[in-house]
Simulated scan of single mutants.
Amino acid sequence: MSEHEKLNYVEFPSKKLTETKAFFEQAFGWSFTDYGPEYTAFSNQGLDGGFFKADMSSSTENGAALLVFYSNDLEGTQEKVTRAGGEIAKPIFSFPGGRRFHFTEPCGNEFAVWSDLEVQ
């Protein structure tokens, strides 16, 4: 079953944990538990996980897996992403079964958001 804006454990790199945390707190309402200065974890997002300090980012251009959020309001979620400092990598487009967009958070990790609902 699809859940609105939820991801179950995955880990991502982050050049600046503070910026990554701030983005996800603002855009999606996430909360974090810090485990020292180089790791922070999130839970209850459909997929638990964390971010570790590293000088790299996760991008499909480099062959990384793409984690995709679900949204009941694709345009509204896209607006929240940009307001929080995310950059739209691929604007909303249609595909068989729905519509989606791709974005990067401030430290460059790429994610996508999809919906099976029509434009509201």
Rank of each mutant, 00 (worst) to 15 (best):
114 W>R: 12
66 L>Q: 06
35 Y>R: 11
18 T>P: 00
61 E>Y: 04
16 K>M: 05
43 S>G: 11
71 S>Q: 05
45 Q>F: 02
7 L>G: 05
26 Q>V: 08
1 M>G: 14
116 D>W: 04
44 N>C: 01
22 A>R: 12
103 F>N: 08
31 S>F: 08
12 F>L: 13
110 E>H: 02
70 Y>G: 09
97 G>N: 05
60 T>V: 15
91 P>I: 00
42 F>S: 02
25 E>V: 12
10 V>Y: 05
31 S>V: 11
90 K>R: 10
119 V>H: 15
41 A>T: 15
41 A>W: 01
46 G>R: 02
89 A>V: 15
53 K>Y: 07
18 T>G: 12
33 T>C: 03
14 S>R: 06
95 F>T: 06
8 N>Q: 09
7 L>R: 00
39 Y>T: 08
95 F>Q: 03
31 S>H: 14
33 T>Q: 13
82 T>F: 01
82 T>N: 04
45 Q>M: 15
2 S>C: 04
57 S>Y: 14
118 E>M: 03
63 G>N: 07
59 S>M: 10
80 K>L: 07
105 E>H: 09
33 T>P: 02
107 C>L: 01
14 S>W: 06
12 F>V: 05
5 E>K: 13
90 K>G: 01
89 A>P: 01
74 L>V: 03
55 D>C: 00
52 F>N: 05
81 V>P: 00
28 F>G: 03
5 E>T: 13
109 N>K: 02
26 Q>S: 14
19 E>A: 15
42 F>T: 01
56 M>H: 09
21 K>G: 00
102 H>Q: 12
67 L>I: 08
86 G>Y: 04
65 A>N: 10
8 N>F: 09
86 G>E: 02
93 F>N: 07
30 W>F: 15
6 K>E: 07
54 A>S: 13
74 L>M: 02
61 E>T: 10
16 K>Q: 15
4 H>A: 13
103 F>M: 03
105 E>Y: 06
40 T>M: 09
108 G>N: 08
28 F>W: 07
24 F>I: 04
